[in-house]
């Protein structure tokens, strides 16, 4: 190669100031700073788990056994997918500590289940959580107000309930737990896609056909990356400052479409996806919207290093200044030479 002496050490030279910059912004290892009481979930800690087996021996299996009371004959019948409950998932959900019969009438203990049971309306979230000090921080009442205004509720004549998104047997708190942002995004988006991506489930609440999510969002470049990094609700709900998770789903026309809504220093993401982090993060890394960086994302336009911002302004100013001073002397001295 021709460049025997040059580039090698020059590149190193260039990297030194960069390393310096990074060192400046390097996060100190984060000690667990949330004093959240340690709840260990799981079947073994649920006092009702044995009792629940009276239901799960059927609802927790792909096939359930039926015995003919007269002949004693046993058959194995498939449990329909929508009635199937995964034990592992249930015992990790928010209602992991429950007995099935806390929410379902005791008469379900018998099979075939009585006809009258089917007419019992299920509990609402508010029946248990409404106006309860323990859950005040979630603001269930405000969430319900928002939900009642949402396109889901109004466009389905009120058939759309909280349970349609919050699966009673699997929902886990996501954003508030400060989990990995990509996991939060994936699980939140799954809450929508299980229905918008499944004509059968969609058909349970609507008579129209669901549209293809991928193709209706083709205008978004790097769609795969975006769907991994932002939630559907970040674009589709109206921001509510008092709620961690806005619940007012707007009609599609009102969705966020402008890139700069997110890709700018006053990114809406700080009020939506990164709201929890933005509130909690006590360390600044010298970056605008540093909560995004904490989460291993990088949003063009929304993440600027303040140090680099001021540094670059300074260097640029000095360069222009030097050019101006030099020009000034050039003009002065060239006049002088001419006069001589």
């Amino acid at each position: 190669m021709k460049l025997k002496t040059g580039p090698g050490y020059l590149i190193l030279l260039l990297l030194v100031p960069l390393l310096f910059l990074y060192a400046f912004n390097l996060p100190v290892v984060q000690e667990a700073d949330d004093p959240q009481e340690l709840i260990v979930k799981g079947a073994e800690n649920n006092p009702f788990s044995e009792e629940n087996e009276t239901c799960l021996r059927c609802h927790g299996e792909q096939k359930y056994e039926l015995t003919d009371p007269v002949t004693g004959m046993v058959v194995r019948r498939p449990m329909s997918g929508s009635y199937y409950i995964d034990r592992d998932v249930f015992y990790q959900s928010v209602h992991w500590s429950f007995a099935c019969l806390d929410c379902h009438l005791a008469d379900y203990g018998e099979y075939p289940h009585a006809l009258s049971l089917r007419f019992e309306p299920p509990y609402n979230c508010l029946d248990c959580h409404g106006y309860d000090e323990t859950y005040a921080r979630y603001k269930f009442e405000d969430i319900e107000t928002e939900h009642l205004k949402s396109a889901h509720y109004t466009q389905t004549n009120g058939e759309f309930s909280c349970w349609n998104c919050h699966n009673p047997h699997s929902y886990q708190v996501l954003a508030r737990e400060g989990k990995d942002i990509f996991e939060v995004v994936r699980n939140s988006n799954n809450m929508c896609l299980v229905c918008h991506g499944d004509p059968f489930k969609f058909g349970l609440v609507s008579d129209i056909e669901p549209t293809e999510i991928i193709s209706t969002h083709n205008w978004l470049p790097n769609q795969r990356l975006h769907f991994k990094a932002v939630r559907c609700i970040d674009c589709h709900t109206e921001i509510n400052d008092s709620l961690l998770v806005s619940h007012n789903m707007r009609p599609a026309e009102e969705a966020v479409k402008g890139c700069v809504s997110c890709h700018s220093s006053n990114s809406i993401l700080m009020g939506t996806l990164y709201k929890y982090e933005a509130k909690e993060s006590r360390r600044e890394y010298g970056f605008v919207n540093s909560a995004i960086i904490r989460n291993n994302s990088y949003v063009i336009g929304a993440n600027r290093s303040k140090l680099m911002n001021y540094g670059s302004l300074l260097i640029f100013g000095l360069t222009l200044g030097a050019v101006l001073v030099h020009t000034f002397f050039r003009i002065r001295f060239s006049k002088k030479h001419h006069n001589e």
């Binding site: 990074y22 960086i293 291993n296 994302s297 680099m308």
Partner: peptide, 18 residues
């Protein structure tokens, strides 16, 4: 180094662009 690769690439990109 505890940062996302995308973030680091972007910083390097910006620094060189400058």
């Amino acid at each position: 180094l505890g940062f996302s690769g995308i973030f680091l690439s972007a910083q390097l990109h910006i620094a060189m662009g400058f």
